[in-house]
């Protein structure tokens, strides 16, 4: 399963742990932070629909 993790703010220890545990068995994990760097929103839309599952963390 391809999973996209979107981070709206800097992840705390709980979110980091959950993503790490989930990543252990996922075929492909992509992490997209929104709070730092430049976000390519058009590409993000493509990524959202290209992944099997999307989790938009806090």
């Amino acid at each position: 399963m391809r999973v996209l993790h979107i981070l709206k703010s800097s992840p705390d220890e709980t979110v980091e742990k959950l993503i790490n545990y989930l990543s252990e068995t996922d075929d492909e994990t992509t992490v997209q932070p929104l709070f730092s760097g430049t976000v390519d929103w058009l590409r993000l839309v493509d990524d959202i629909f290209a992944h099997d599952k999307v989790i938009c963390w806090w």
Partner: peptide, 17 residues
């Protein structure tokens, strides 16, 4: 535990934080 919660999230079709 957080690890067990992660397992549940893996099995969920939709996760809503």
């Amino acid at each position: 535990t957080i690890k067990e919660i992660a397992q549940r999230l893996r099995e969920a079709d939709l996760v809503i934080p």
